[in-house]
Design a protein around this nucleic acid. Structure first.
Lengths: 188, 188
DNA sequence: ACATTTCATTGACCTTTGCGAATAAAATTT
DNA sequence: AAATTTTATTCGCAAAGGTCAATGAAATGT
């Protein structure tokens, strides 16, 4: 996957001036406090959030529980994918876990600029492809690993998550109960 | 999701003549017998398979078991996504479950034609977006539904799978053992 | 700094699901 | 059509993980 992230980074570094200018003109930076919502369920995700610093999480509420679907750190792009791509109400929330600064790009502005700038089309395509690869890996892990193995995977592949996020949220992300996660940690 | 499939169908119906011609020229039709492999693990998925009729499945081997990741019916596009997009060895197999006729497009030819035909870029983009949406839904179901509910979901959303595919394969697709699936079916 | 609330750990118990083996039913092969 | 192989069902048992409840530890608010 690293290979893929590099590919995207390189694409951005090589943006021509016109593309960069267009992107800059339709984007703005905003800071949120810990606990703030960047997106709420039932509203349409008409913005994407490029994390400059701080941590976000995306989750949905199901049976009185919160199920975390993704964490976002510096240089990650946060959005509710199905709400964003189809411009329909979101079932997910996006919330600041710390004080967060994000660079915001409006959906409709981006769609307009995409028509004019091939490199933005490429960016959009690669980001989508990358998300699909990430999801495929997630499904693979859910099919092949038990709770302990999933925890070990996140420990080695995403230690920054373990270090900076509450266990309650990590538990739902790994699809185990908080109690089970606590026992797994006690054993290892 | 149906909305999305329609969007893709409409795009294809509206292909201009040049696009259609290009696509036709780089594609060919081939028939496989039941049991044949269209793709084997460790080889690179350098083709995509558009199912004209028959059924395919994609799976990987893990701990002496076969875990089915997808079934393909008429008008579905089969490939190993990570192998295809990154042109690296596949961990998945694609196999014919019945006699199957597919329309095959070579990866490299498609990449070349994509440069010339905007509508092929759009097709590629929408197909990727659709796959990501499909995967997101799959992860959602794995997180929120138990074995019985997942079976009921496939029963209502994809009855054609239940009718035409072996339970062993459906079980691994739903991430339950064959025995559990059998008990679920006995209860309902 | 203290009080309150939230979060994490631990234990007892229960439910779901997996596994091995036996059997039955289907599908294939000869 | 009979024999063989593959697939599906059912059972008993074991393991993994969930739930409820109590307690301890951290974080937050005043």
């Amino acid at each position: 996957m690293q290979h893929y992230i590099d590919k995207i980074k390189k694409l951005i570094e090589n943006f021509d001036d016109a593309t960069l200018k267009a992107l800059t003109e339709i984007s703005y930076t905003k800071t949120f406090s810990k606990g703030d919502y960047l997106l709420k369920a039932d509203s349409i995700c008409d913005k994407s959030f490029w994390v400059e610093n701080g941590i976000l999480r995306k989750y949905y509420a199901y049976n009185d529980k919160e199920i975390t679907t993704e964490f976002y750190f510096k240089d990650d792009l946060a959005m509710s994918f199905d709400s964003y791509t189809q411009q329909k109400p979101s079932r997910e929330y996006i919330q600041a876990l710390t004080e967060v600064t994000v660079n915001i790009t409006d959906y409709s502005s981006f769609q307009i600029e995409k028509l004019k700038h091939r490199q933005l089309q490429e960016l959009d395509f690669f980001m989508t492809e990358y998300y699909a690869l990430w999801l495929e890996e997630k499904v693979f892990e859910l099919h092949t690993q038990n709770a302990t193995e999933r925890y070990q995977t996140i420990l080695t592949k995403s230690p920054h998550i373990i270090q900076q996020v509450q266990l309650t949220q990590i538990a739902s992300y790994l699809n185990v109960s908080l109690e089970t996660l606590s026992r797994i940690r006690a054993k290892i």
